[in-house]
Design a binder for these strands. Structure first.
Length: 736
DNA sequence: GAGCACTGC
């Protein structure tokens, strides 16, 4: 391996030189001194803290005004060491003088906690009205930031500072500074009030370029050009992309504040490798033998590679260490589908002469921060879901990461002290990588964004103020999809059904199923199923050893699911969880054991109940005509008629996701005739006797897989088609 | 015979 030049300062000088060119109004700041006490670094995104932080603060011992103020004074000393605080007098004039400011603050600059407070002080000083919204891509970040800032501000959470995320809103009438998720701000926009309660909107982590942040940027531009010229906008981002944000907002000034991170030296391979797992393991062994103590974080593309690496390291660990000079390697897997208990293991420090090695997906790149990491090993790969709108199919691809992503990964080694980053590719190949990853919106299904725009009253979707235009083709497919779901009329105007769909916190297809269920009288059962579908990683993947056993147990519990498939199975499992296990004294531990035996996430089912409660409230409000009987919660039986009714509701939303059984027992999709296989995780994987199948997801990995599969009768296709949506489809094709 | 990562009035 060859050591490469480590240049941490490049972006700073880049912006500085722009000022000399006189091209743009740029204010460079000097590198800040490194802080002396790293334990005082404010850390976010800690999943150990999760949603309970605020509860601790709210429910803790009686909090007096005096104790809040003294805590705030204590924290002020820490705040004053933050780069953003030290440059306050230089930053604020820019923000005050410009309607839009782009602020580039590196990790540890304090931008997310301090800038909003500076603005809040000004609002108080000038006795102005209006409040500040700060958006975050993730719930945990919004919660943790609000909690921290409330402490710094010397108030209780929910007084002047609060947060609003799905299922949890601590804001009150007093709140002037509100941290919220992107999704929540979009929901507020959907209420059509032009965000009038806010005088300042701060978009944080804009560089992550999620679909929702991109949409918000587009909405903000149209707001300041139209009904809200008074609105002040600050776009905050880690590094890079500043030019793009600035240009989008009429060449807004770019401010750059350096952070407080430690140097990370880069090492590259001299020759490329073709076995990435092998290369990662070798690299870990080398680190273990040659480097000082400190944990290793390895980035691999997916679960398969991670499990393989963990297995290998478990086998060889004792042979490549000794008790005196080379520590024992302890491998840990980390990915989203891992049961929460196992995820939590990576945060516990290891005792004794050992070195923790975490094999992780991209989850550790932004969402999760692990302390103690001194070394990063980067495979240079990630998995990405790409939507093919022509085929209505998602493909899961392993692709090279971008330079920005590689830098972010390396940075994970320099959070607490100097670190080293080992890139398992050659330096010339790094230089050939794209600077940025392709933004999510360019590779996503835009049906839902298009519906939001329609609901907001935008007619010309193609020429809207997109921050990143997903392309005419994608937009037209989205419009057509919405038309077929009955959300748009023949002139492309939003229908009453479309309005309802836009207000439901579901993807349009599921909203459409829900509305249908309210019409035919199986709303309660369909809500339960949709709630299960809305929760990611509810059904966990059993390890290969216990796979057959778990499948057997699931099948034996779900008589109807065995025949009709995964949607009905979810309802059967929900019924057991909710009705049967909820009664005893020790309901929680009973549920826990039950979930463990079936390899189901208990946390997942708790979320299912929250989604269900929310949907029931929405439905009550949206469908005033539904009768009492329809609303009543009930268990599913094995009654074929009832099950058919439920599945036909799903068919109205997923008519495109159907396949017909062939004589050779394979399936071919109705829309394109492509072969499709039932995913092995499905209840119907072994059942080869379905005349047809319907699925909620069509993913291409090694081949086309149908996920969440249900049995359908072929006659249903015609029935559902003539009843509704496909009439529209015919009109579309005949008008072409 | 298999599972990138987030998120919602």
């Amino acid at each position: 391996m060859a050591a490469a030049n480590n240049n941490n300062n490049s972006s700073g000088s880049k912006y500085a030189s722009k000022k000399q060119n006189g091209r743009r109004n740029v204010q460079p700041f000097n590198r800040d001194t490194q802080i002396k006490n790293p334990s005082k670094i404010i850390r976010f995104n800690d999943p150990n803290e999760d949603d309970d932080v605020s509860n601790r603060l709210l429910k803790g011992d009686v909090v007096t005004y005096k104790s809040l103020k003294s805590r705030a004074n204590e924290l002020l000393r820490v705040r004053k060491t933050l780069p953003v605080y030290q440059h306050k007098s230089e930053i604020m004039p820019y923000i005050n003088a410009n309607p839009v400011t782009v602020l580039i603050g590196e990790t540890g600059s304090g931008k997310s906690t301090q800038i909003p407070q500076f603005i809040l002080e000004q609002i108080y000083d000038k006795k102005k009205h209006g409040s500040i919204a700060v958006t975050q891509p993730r719930r945990v970040a919004a919660i943790n930031l609000a909690t921290r800032v409330a402490q710094e501000h010397g108030c209780k959470l929910g007084d002047q500072v609060g947060y609003s995320v799905r299922f949890d809103n601590t804001t009150t009438a007093k709140t002037r500074l509100k941290y919220l998720t992107d999704g929540m701000l979009l929901r507020e926009l959907m209420m059509n009030n032009n965000l009038k309660e806010y005088s300042v909107i701060i978009i944080d982590e804009a560089h992550e370029r999620t679909v929702l942040t991109d949409l918000i940027l587009g909405f903000l531009k149209s707001l300041i050009q139209g009904p809200r010229p008074d609105l002040k906008i600050i776009v905050m981002s880690a590094t890079l992309q500043a030019e793009k944000f600035s240009e989008f907002f009429n060449n807004a000034p770019i401010l750059f504040v350096e952070g407080r991170k430690f140097d990370v030296s880069q090492y590259y391979l001299k020759a490329p490798t073709d076995d990435i797992v092998d290369a990662v393991i070798r690299c870990c062994i080398q680190i273990n033998q040659g480097e000082q103590l400190g944990d290793v974080l390895c980035f691999l593309p997916g679960q398969e590679e991670i499990d393989k690496a963990v297995t290998i390291m478990e086998k060889i660990a004792k042979y490549v260490s000794d008790e005196t000079s080379v520590p024992l390697l302890i491998p840990y897997p980390l990915y989203a589908a891992l049961p929460p208990v196992q995820q939590a293991l990576v945060f516990a420090p290891v005792k004794g002469f050992k070195r923790k090695v975490i094999f992780s997906t991209n989850i550790a790149e932004t969402s999760v921060t692990i302390s103690g990491v001194k070394f990063v090993v980067d495979s240079g790969l990630r998995k990405v879901k790409v939507w093919r709108h022509q085929l209505g199919l998602a493909t899961l691809l392993t692709v090279p990461i971008s330079q920005a992503s590689a830098m972010q990964r390396s940075g994970r080694a320099g959070r607490e002290s100097e670190g080293k980053s080992f890139r398992l590719y050659c330096e010339p190949d790094y230089l050939k990588l794209p600077k940025q990853s392709e933004p999510e919106i360019a590779r996503s299904d835009v049906t839902s964004p298009v519906l939001m725009l329609k609901r907001y009253g935008i007619n010309d979707i193609v020429n809207w103020t997109w921050f990143e235009n997903p392309g005419k083709e994608a937009i037209i497919m989205g419009l057509q999809e919405l038309y077929e779901l009955g959300a748009l009329d023949t002139r492309g105007n939003i229908t009453k059904r479309g309005e309802q769909m836009a207000l439901l916190p579901l993807q349009p297809h599921l909203s459409s199923v829900l509305i249908k269920a309210s019409e035919v009288g199986c709303l309660s059962q369909v809500i339960d199923i949709i709630s299960c579908l809305s929760v990611e990683n509810l059904m966990l993947n059993p390890s290969p050893e216990e796979r057959d056993e778990v499948n057997e147990r699931r099948l034996s519990l779900c008589n109807a699911g065995k025949k009709y498939g995964d949607l009905i199975m979810l309802k059967e499992l929900f019924d057991i969880y909710f009705y049967e296990l909820g009664k005893s004294q020790d309901a929680n531990s009973e549920r826990n054991d039950w979930c463990k035996g079936l390899c189901i996430s208990l946390r997942g089912f708790k979320n299912v109940v929250r989604v269900r409660d929310q949907l029931r409230v929405y439905c009550k409000r949206l469908f005033s005509s539904i009768n009492e009987e329809n609303e009543e919660a009930r268990k599913i039986g094995e009654n074929g008629d009832e099950i058919s009714k439920i599945l036909k509701c799903f068919l109205t939303g997923f008519i495109k996701n159907t396949a017909i059984g062939m004589p050779d027992r394979s399936y071919r999709t109705v829309s394109t005739g492509e072969p499709i296989s039932v995913h092995p995780s499905s209840m119907l994987f072994l059942n080869k006797s379905c005349p047809g199948i319907m699925y909620t997801e069509y993913v291409f990995t090694t081949k086309g897989y149908a996920r969440n599969v249900s049995r359908i009768e072929l006659s249903w296709l015609q029935e559902v088609v003539t009843n509704g949506t496909a009439v529209a489809k015919q009109k579309i094709s005949s008008s072409k």
